[in-house]
Every structure is written in C-alpha cells, then in structure tokens.
Amino acid sequence: MLKVKNLHARIGDKEVLKGLNLEIKPGEVHAIMGPNGSGKSTLSKVLAGHPDYEVTSGSVDFEVDFQDRDLLTMAPDERARQGVFLAFQYPIEVPGVSNITFLRAAFNSVCRAQGVKEMGEEDFRKFVEQKAALVDLNPSFLERAVNEGFSGGEKKRNEILQMAVLSPRLAILDETDSGLDIDSLKVVAQGVNKLRNKNNAILLITHYQRLLDYIVPDHVHVLAGGRILQSGDKTLAQKLEQHGYDWLVKAGV
C-alpha cells in the first residue's frame, strides 16, 4: 500500500530524513519508535504533505485503485481524499467552526472524490454520533468549535473521531499517546482497534512501548538520525523499553 524508498527531507536548512525506507501492506500495523529529534514527526508530516517540509530525494508510492501513485506530487487535501490520514500530535484549534460542520464538510469532500453519495445533515448526525461513541466522546463536543478549549485528551479523541468518520486506508498516528492518562489511552486504543481491518493500515509513531500494549503492532521500526536502524516484531519494542535507545543508536553509529 505504501512504499517509501530512500526518502530524504529537510525543513529549512536542516536535513531530517536521510534515506528512509519503509513498506506497509494492507491490514498491517507498524510502529515507529525513536528518540527525540530522530525524524518521527517529520516522517508523518512529509507523508501528509506539510508545506514546510521539502523532499530532496527518494520516493513515496501510495496504492490507489490497485495502482501505485506518487504521493509526493499530491496536495495535502488530495492525499486525504485518497485515504491518507494524519492524527496530529498537536491538533489545531479552529475557532468559530463547529466540529460537526467541519466533519461533515470533510466527509462529503472525501465522498465526492471517491464517487460515493454524500450524506445529508440528519443522516450524518446519526452516523457521527455512533462514531463518537467509539471514542467515548460526548455528542455535545460536536457542537463546539473544532478543538477550541478541548483538554489534551479530548483533542486526541477528537482526532480518532475524525479518523473514524473518514475511514482512511492509511492512518498515521503521530504520538497520539502523548499527554494521555492511562484511562484515555485505553479509550483511544480501543477506538483505533475497532477501526482496524484487513484493507487498511496504521502507522503508529510513538516514544513509548505503553501504547503498543493496547494497539499491538505487526512490525516495529527504530528510527534514529533520519533512518530506520532496525526493524522487528513487537518484541523489539519490549527490548527498547528495557534498554532504552542508546545501545541501538550507538550500534548504528
């Protein structure tokens, strides 16, 4: 579904990704772990198409209708309409725009792109209320301005609500566990698990093993210095939890 080959990317003058390779197949959950500044968030932003990041070489292919397409030439909104979703580490507040208006506009925009019938106001409300229950978010949040005045945990749950509404084929969760207490973490993880199926894939970006106790990955990668140093199964995450990143980073250098 996603093939990242020898990806180099920079922000300003600083090269952050230095030859990253990654392949994700439908139905898989991948976790990318790594120390601060290793390039984890950069990877997520490059995949979503953030304008501040410049790809200097390498390629990213994303399968759309059984054909590989060059993800890097697509605008952020087009990527989203083709099924790429980024759950933000720091979700943005949008004053004045109600959550439900935003969700419906986004949902219908994706529907239009994929040739599916758009949903009317009432049907959409029912649909979105079911999805909100998945992440235990009170329907009153639908009327509030997007993320405005939400607590850290509410913002993260709101991201997963958006994911549930848009049902992306590739969901990238950028440190969705950061700032969550254990109860919220469980709620978010359960929500994500319910959205897993054999046709979609999830890329988890995290510092900590903790999240992986609840969302169990098929593959774990260690990112450091802009490259993947080591890949393995979920036991690699446990090893990192015990020994930290140092042994790997040193071995890599």
Binding site: G49, P76, D77, F88, P91, I92, V94, F102
Partner: peptide, 14 residues
C-alpha cells in the same frame, strides 16, 4: 495560520 490551513486540508478539504 498556515497550521490551520494545513490541518483542514489534511482532512480532504480543498
């Protein structure tokens, strides 16, 4: 902000 625009566009809005 650029961040707001990117956030909304990353949800499929033109």
């Amino acid at each position: 902000s650029e961040d707001q625009l990117f956030y909304l566009q990353s949800r499929g809005l033109s």
